[in-house]
Amino acid sequence: MKKKLIWAAEHALLVVVSFMIIFPIFWMFLTSLKRPIDAYSITFNFQPTFENFITVFRDPWNLGSMVLNSALVAGITVMIAVPCSSLAAYSFSRFRVKGRKILFFLVLSTQFIPAVVIVLPFFLMFRSLGLLDTRIALIIVNLAIVTPFVIWMIKGFIDALPVDSEEAAMIDGASRLRVIRDIVLPMATPGILTSSIFCFILTWNEFLFSLILTRRNAVTLPVGLVNFRTERGDLWELMSAAGVLITVPIFLMAILIQKHFTRGMTAGAIK
């Protein structure tokens, strides 16, 4: 009897937790399908429409260019950060380089610097270089946030790989570079892929840099949300539609890496 009661309490709690996680997301999806008049009333009984998803791509909202900006900035940031970080991670994982501890400490600490601190000097530099409101500027500052994270993550994955086959190949006379290309890379691919997706998510969701460094041309999706706050009030149905567009690709990716997620994020911290 007591066991059954505990079972029931446990499952009731899980239902409550799941509800609290899903409800805000569900409500956003629901609102994105409502006509304006329904968005301003709390109703489940309405005629769903995809009108909002078309409106947000039209003038004056032009979400299309923001989707492009977000995708390009996040994509290119990943393409620069991940290869560079993988090499560094391999070095940290396999060699006892002099000053390794200090270097590693440097990498770990930089990821804790608040974004607002980084963006302040960059704003001044980009201003004098004429790089404000460009995608290049966004990519550069995003690298600051993402690179230390990715080094740390990929190092965790490489640490977990066995060294034997690498050593065997070295004895057979393969060069270090060949060992990396032919042996380490194929084995580390799942970890690198997970880190890449993680890095993409971080950059895609990034808000502060875009808020400060862009005005018109290079605005990304999260900042685009603020545009729906007009003199006529907040346009919730359009905001929700934009929210859905930001969220769906990220949710798909997140679920893809869900299994590796904890391991990557806490890489090595806790095993």
Binding site: S18, I21, I22, P24, I25, W27, M28, T31, I201, W204, N205, F207, L221, P222, V223, L225, V226, D234, W236, M239, S240, G243, I246, T247, I250, F251, M253, A254, I255, Q258, F261
Partner: peptide
């Protein structure tokens, strides 16, 4: 589903709760 709130953009979370 626990991963969903974490993957959501914090700016968007702010907007949603405001709503």
């Amino acid at each position: 589903i626990l991963i969903l709130p974490f993957a959501m953009s914090p700016a968007l979370i702010g907007v949603s709760y405001r709503f």
